[in-house]
Simulated assay, not measured.
Amino acid sequence: MSRTAHTSVPVHPLLAERWSPRSFDVSHELSDEQLTALLEAARWAASGFNMQPWRFIVGRRGDQTFKVVSDALIGFNQAWAGNASALVAAVACERLDDGAPHPTAPYETGLAVAQLTVQAHAEGLHIHQMGGFDAEQLVTAFEIPAGFRPLAVIAVGTVAEADLLADASLRALESSPRQRRPLTETCFSGTWGESTVLPTVTGQ
């Protein structure tokens, strides 16, 4: 299933074709090589002073880690995420070695997840990132140390037909138009709210 974005200028297909499905193929199994490639891509994300504040808790469908991560999801996400091939919790280390706050840890963890996402699409996989989960439940279940905060749970797998989703509202979301705020309302120059002059996207 392709849902290529209609971009104002051409962008790399791995980016234009990225989207976040909820209907995953329950028969798909993630290979060791694919999983390692995703995590390796994340490992090489940009990091200030090479501190690499990201950590990942990785569960594959059928194992105990997957179940524990799934149990921490809100009901809306539990309704579909169990069919994913893997669930990965992204965790940020928000403290430096001396105990001081590490203010860019969430940003850098996001960079690592972004690289994981692009690699997933290069592997023929799809990703759906979720903020709807109980972070404290994950902290307790996995004995995550103080100073570390779960930021997202990432479903990994291959796409199945939208009709396989039991909930009508989920099926509607799966096929709804892909939209983004235009660049003219997002990118500023001179002062806040003053659109950057980009002739190729003027009027969008």
Rank of each mutant, 00 (worst) to 15 (best):
S2G: 08
S2K: 14
R3K: 15
H6I: 12
H6G: 00
V9P: 04
P10H: 11
V11F: 11
V11T: 13
L15P: 00
A16G: 05
R18Q: 13
R18H: 15
S20V: 04
P21Q: 06
R22F: 05
S27V: 00
S31M: 11
S31K: 11
Q34K: 14
T36D: 15
A37E: 08
A37H: 06
A41R: 05
R43P: 04
A45V: 02
S47P: 00
F49P: 00
F49R: 15
Q52A: 09
W54R: 01
F56W: 07
I57P: 00
R61V: 01
R61A: 03
D63K: 01
A72C: 07
I74K: 10
G75V: 09
F76W: 11
Q78W: 05
Q78K: 14
Q78A: 06
G82R: 02
N83M: 01
A84W: 01
S85Y: 04
S85E: 07
A86L: 02
L87F: 07
A90G: 02
V91T: 04
C93K: 13
E94F: 04
D97Q: 14
G99P: 03
P103G: 06
P103L: 13
A105L: 02
A105C: 04
E108K: 02
L111C: 11
V113Q: 01
V113W: 04
V113M: 04
Q115E: 10
L116G: 01
L116N: 01
T117I: 03
Q119D: 03
A120W: 04
A120Y: 05
A120G: 12
A122H: 13
I127N: 10
H128M: 08
G132Y: 10
E136T: 13
L138F: 08
V139W: 05
F142P: 00
E143R: 14
I144Y: 04
P145E: 14
P145K: 08
A146F: 10
A146P: 04
G147I: 03
P150Y: 03
V153P: 02
I154P: 00
V159E: 10
A162P: 11
D163I: 06
A166G: 08
D167K: 07
S169E: 11
S169A: 12
S169G: 02
R171G: 04
L173S: 08
L173C: 02
E174V: 03
S175E: 12
P177Q: 07
R178A: 07
R181C: 10
R181Y: 14
R181A: 15
L183R: 09
L183Y: 12
E185S: 13
T186H: 11
F188I: 10
F188Q: 10
G190V: 11
T191Q: 15
W192P: 08
G193R: 14
G193S: 15
E194Q: 15
E194V: 14
T196W: 15
V197M: 09
V197C: 10
L198N: 11
V201C: 08
V201P: 00
Q204Y: 14
